[in-house]
Write a protein that binds this DNA or RNA. Structure first.
Length: 583
RNA sequence: GCCGAAGUAGCUCAGAGGUAGAGCAACUCCAUGGUAAGGAGUAGGUCGUGGGUUCAAUUCCCACCUUCGGCUCCA
C-alpha cells in the first residue's frame, strides 16, 4: 500500500517532467503536495492553456506506465549548483539550504544516466512510477501564484492536480466538487432572488432583495433574542469616525489601505468609514466614570462595516466591501472573563445546534517569528494564549492550533463549522483583549479604590450575517429551514373552481403570521409544483375539489413525492411547532 | 493589486468583419388542470462601457468596468 503523500509528491515531479518535455526552457519553482493532490509552480516560456492540461496528463500517464524508479541521493552544495546551474529558483533554494547547513538532496526520476527529471527535493516518493494509479489523478487547473508566496516576487504559473489512491476516490471527490458547484451561493442567491449586485453601485456591495433582507433580519433577530436573554444591550455608533480614532486603536497603522477614506468638504478633517466596531465601543465605555459594580458591560452592534478589499479578493457574499457582524464587546474585570466566555460559548453552541453544524475551535495564536506584528506585552500574550487553551479544555471543546492567526491585539478562539459537504467555515470568534483598553486608557474604579483597566472581550457568533447567509445557502443547498424561509408555503388551486377556497386558506395562514403566497396561474398543476420545488419552498398546499369539500389542505413537503391531506388547523399547528423549534 | 479566462435577451447558451439566434422565463389567447415542464402566438438585445482601425466593428486593436479560477490579504 502506498502512502498517498508519496504518490502526490511523485506526481508533482512527473508533472514537472511533462512540462519539461513540452517547454524545455521552463524555470522550475516548487511542487508540494496539498489536500487532495499536488501542484507545481513554473516560470514558462509561453502561456499554457487549459487544453494543454490534457496533453500533459497524457504525458504523465505514459511516464507512469514506463515504470521509472525514483532515486534519492545526498549531494554537496557545489554539485547541486552545477546540476541546477540554469535554474534560478532552485539556486535560490540551494543557497538557503547551504546557509542553514542543511543537506542537499535530489530525486532522480528514471535512469540516473539519462533521467526524465531531476529535482531538488527532500523526498517522500514512491519507489517506482508503476505504484501510481494512472486513473486516480487528473490535472485540475492553471493558476497564477507568487514565487514563495510573496506578492513582491515574480508571478509563476501553477498547475494543480488532484490525486488519490483509487479511481473511485477521485470520482467521489469530483462529484463533491460538482455538488458544491450546484450549491454555489452566488447561483442560489440569483435563482431564489435573495441578493444581487449592480455595476452602478459597485463590486463587493451586495443588495438584498425583500427575501434576502428577510433572512438577514431574521438571523439578526435570532441572535439579538439570545443576547437579550444573556444581558447584552445594543448600542449604535456612526458609520464614519475621525482618523484619530483608528490611529489610537492601531488599526490605522495596520489597515489604512483597507479602509475607505472620507473627506469633509469644509475642512481638512479626515474620516474613515468604519471597518469594525471595537474602537467606537471603547468611546461609549469611556463616556462615564466606571465602577467595578458596573461591570460587565456588554455592547452589541449589528451596524454595517466597510472595508476596501482589493478587487481581486471579492467573491459573492464570501468577501465583500460592505457587511455587518453580530458584534459584541464585553468590558469586564479580569476575574469575570471566564464566566463571560462560558456564556458566549454556550450561546454559540445553541446557534450551531439550531443550524446543525458540527464544529471545532481553532486557537489562533501569534506568529512567534514576527513579534513586531503584535501590540502589547509578550508575557501577557503568553498568559492569554494559555488561558484560551484552558477555557477550551474546561468546556470540553475540540480544538486545533492556529499559529499566526491571532489579531494584532489579541489571540482568538475561532469556531470552524463543518457544513453538509464537509467543508469548514470560520464563523464565531472570541478574543480576550488587554491591548485596546490600555491604548484607549479605559479604566474602572475597583473595590480597593484603585483605577484599573477592564478586559475587553470581542465576540461574534455567526460572524457576519451576510457571510452566514452564504454558508447557509450552501449548507442547505438553498432549502432553508421553515422558520427562516422567506416563503414558507405556496398555495395552489387545482383549478379556477377552487380560487375562492385557496384565497380563504391563504388569508387564514397570513392571519397566523405565516409567510405564504397564493399562485393562481394559467399553468398546469404539474408546472406550478415544479416552479415551487425549484424555488425550494418548504410546503406546497394543493387545494382541489376534495380539499374544499372536507375543509382540508393537501400538503406536499419540499422534495418529497408523497403528500398528506390534513385539516388546516393541523397544518397551522405543524408550522407553529416547526417555527417554535427552529426547524 | 498580481497571473489567467470570460462578458451576446431576465436565465442557460449558439453565432459571425456586412447592424443577431435557440430553449426556458415574461406577456396574450386556448386548455380548468390532482402532485416536477399542456398547446399556439407576441414581445424582448446600442452583442459590458469608451476609444481606435475599416466603406462597414458585436466580431480586429487599446483602455476601462464587471465576473470567474487562483495568488497575496482578511481587523
Amino acid at each position: 500500500m502506498q502512502n498517498i503523500e508519496n504518490i502526490r509528491h511523485s506526481l508533482s515531479h512527473l508533472l514537472a517532467a511533462a512540462v519539461l518535455q513540452k517547454f524545455p526552457k521552463t524555470q522550475f519553482g516548487i511542487g508540494p503536495t496539498i489536500e487532495n493532490g499536488f501542484y507545481y509552480d513554473f516560470l514558462l516560456p509561453q502561456s499554457v492553456k487549459p487544453e494543454d492540461l490534457k496533453e500533459l496528463e497524457k504525458t504523465i500517464k505514459n511516464l507512469i506506465k514506463r515504470g521509472f524508479p525514483f532515486l534519492g541521493k545526498n549531494i554537496t552544495v557545489t554539485e547541486a549548483k552545477k546540476i541546477f546551474k540554469n535554474q534560478i529558483f532552485k539556486l535560490e533554494l540551494i543557497k538557503e539550504l547551504s546557509k542553514e547547513n542543511k543537506t542537499v538532496s535530489i530525486y532522480i526520476t528514471g535512469n540516473p544516466e539519462k533521467p526524465v527529471f531531476t529535482d531538488l527535493c527532500r523526498g517522500g516518493h514512491v519507489k517506482n512510477t508503476k505504484e501510481i494509479n494512472p486513473d486516480a489523478f487528473t490535472l485540475e487547473s492553471i493558476a497564477g501564484a507568487y514565487w514563495r508566496g510573496s506578492e513582491k516576487n515574480k508571478m509563476l504559473t501553477r498547475i494543480y492536480g488532484l490525486a488519490f489512491e483509487t479511481k473511485k476516490e477521485l470520482e467521489a471527490y469530483l462529484a463533491l466538487v460538482e455538488e458544491a458547484k450546484k450549491r454555489d451561493h452566488r447561483k442560489m442567491g440569483k435563482l431564489l432572488d435573495f441578493f444581487t449586485f449592480s455595476d452602478l453601485i459597485g463590486s463587493g456591495l451586495p443588495l438584498y432583495t425583500p427575501k434576502g433582507a428577510f433572512i438577514r433580519k431574521t438571523l439578526n433577530d435570532y441572535i439579538e433574542s439570545l443576547q437579550i436573554k444573556a444581558g447584552y444591550t445594543q448600542v449604535w455608533t456612526p458609520q464614519i469616525a475621525k482618523a484619530e480614532l483608528f490611529k489610537k486603536s492601531g488599526h490605522y497603522d495596520k489597515y489604512r489601505d483597507g479602509m475607505f477614506r472620507v473627506i469633509s468638504n469644509y475642512s481638512e478633517e479626515e474620516f474613515y468609514l468604519k471597518p469594525m466596531n471595537c474602537p467606537q465601543h471603547t468611546q461609549i465605555y469611556a463616556s462615564q466614570p466606571r465602577s467595578y459594580r458596573d461591570l460587565p458591560l456588554r455592547y452589541t452592534d449589528f451596524a454595517m462595516l466597510y472595508r476596501d478589499e482589493k478587487p481581486g479578493e471579492l467573491s459573492g457574499l464570501a468577501r465583500v466591501r460592505s457587511f455587518s457582524q453580530d458584534d459584541c464587546h464585553i468590558f469586564c474585570k479580569e476575574d469575570q472573563v471566564d464566566k463571560e466566555i462560558d456564556v458566549a460559548l454556550t450561546m454559540t453552541k445553541e446557534v450551531m445546534a439550531t443550524f446543525g453544524f458540527k464544529y471545532r475551535y481553532r486557537l489562533s495564536s501569534r506568529d512567534k517569528a514576527h513579534p513586531e506584528k503584535y501590540l502589547g506585552d509578550p508575557n501577557r500574550w503568553d498568559k492569554v494564549e494559555k488561558w484560551a487553551e484552558e477555557i477550551m479544555k474546561r468546556n470540553k471543546i475540540d480544538y486545533c492550533d492556529g499559529p499566526g492567526e491571532a489579531t494584532f491585539y489579541a489571540p482568538k478562539m475561532d469556531l470552524l463549522a463543518t457544513d453538509a459537504l464537509g467543508r469548514e467555515w470560520q464563523l464565531s470568534t472570541v478574543q480576550i483583549d488587554f491591548v485596546m483598553p490600555q491604548r484607549f486608557g479605559l479604566t474602572y474604579t475597583d473595590k480597593d479604590g484603585q483605577e484599573k483597566h477592564p478586559v475587553m472581550i470581542h465576540r461574534a457568533i455567526i460572524g457576519s450575517p451576510e457571510r452566514f447567509i452564504m454558508v447557509l445557502l450552501e449548507h442547505y443547498a438553498g432549502a432553508l429551514p421553515v422558520w427562516i424561509s422567506p416563503i414558507q408555503a405556496r398555495i395552489l388551486a387545482v383549478s379556477e373552481k377552487q380560487k375562492q377556497y385557496a384565497k380563504k386558506i391563504t388569508e387564514k395562514l397570513k392571519e397566523q403570521n405565516f409567510r405564504v403566497e397564493l399562485m393562481n396561474s394559467n399553468e398546469t398543476l404539474g408546472k406550478r409544483i415544479r416552479e415551487a420545488e425549484l424555488q425550494k419552498i418548504p410546503y406546497i398546499l394543493v387545494l382541489g375539489e376534495r380539499e374544499e369539500k372536507d375543509y382540508t389542505v393537501n400538503v406536499r413537503e419540499r422534495s418529497k413525492k408523497e403528500t398528506q391531506t390534513i385539516s388546516i388547523q393541523d397544518f397551522i399547528k405543524k408550522l407553529e411547532k416547526e417555527v417554535e423549534e427552529k426547524k
